[in-house]
Amino acid sequence: MNKPKYTIAVTGLNAIDSPGPGLAIIRGLKDAKSFDVRIIGLAYEALEPGIYLHDYIDKTYQIPFPTAGQEVLFERLSYINSEENIDFLYPNFDAELYGFIKLQKHMEEILGIKMVLPTIEQFEERHKVNLYDYGIKHDIKVPKARAIYSTAEIPAAAQLYGYPLVVKGKFYDAKVAYNNEQAAQHFNKISAQWGLPILIQEFVRGSEVNVCGIGDGKGNLLGAVPMRKLYITDKGKAWAGISLDNERLLELTRNMVESTKWQGPFELEYVKTVDDEYYLLEINPRFPAWCYLTVGAGQNQMEALVNLAMGKEVEPFKSYKVGTMFIRYSNDLIVDINEFEKISTIGEL
């Protein structure tokens, strides 16, 4: 049988101690049975390890940071596309997603580059600050939360949720507070770094479980693998994890995808309480760094997503191998300075 060969561009090549998902996705694509690939890396920094991993990436181009604006990004992508003729693109950073979602139509129509991403409404709605309303709207259990703009609002919020409670930044960072003073301290620290508002969230005690999956945008769940982290790094990232047999979690995920008509990859972060209740903590609108576990467990979700974009019939995965583990390891690459010179000066390698 004749397999097609796709040129697929991937960002998130920072396979460092708090890794982006790029390399995991590339491994999934290389394992694909239904097509062959040529991989184009898209890097922001000259030291992203993926740039130098020539077994995985055929060629890397630097792209401008999201702060440079969509116009500049589009111009750069047009150039890269004129060299490489890209079929599909995988954006992987939270900060870049907004720009890619906005450019999606343009990229498909003018450059012929396909992507599968959530809609801008889905992307905005699931933001931390909006998650509580999102939960109410879609009948998903989420910890109670409210956005506040001043420490004066802390006591009122504390009365509602009681201590301990979680003080969260708009984009990153979360700290547990046990009294008003501590909450105010966290508020000041986090708001200084990430700005306002600050989220005051009910503290839900339990263990964290995550799901990596894809929705087809019509309400169907195409694949999902639940995972529990077995060990985490000091940055809270997974060091090792294992796939779980958890019908309840899959049910919740199926409901979420059906209710929101989620389109594209996602990672759901849940807390499971001692009473076996599941609270949704976060929706990440992209594949997580541990997504290669889904391939190991028998669901090549990265491959499925590309086929979905190419208009192929994609059958939902029916099962996965429970008890599949991943253990992350780091490795020191040996690199010639000429390679660093090339990516640094001409922005290509």
């Binding site: 920094e45 630097q62 401008p64 922005g347």
Partner: peptide, 8 residues
């Protein structure tokens, strides 16, 4: 890590 543009 100061390179925040694509190439030059």
């Amino acid at each position: 890590g100061m390179m925040n543009k694509f190439g030059t």
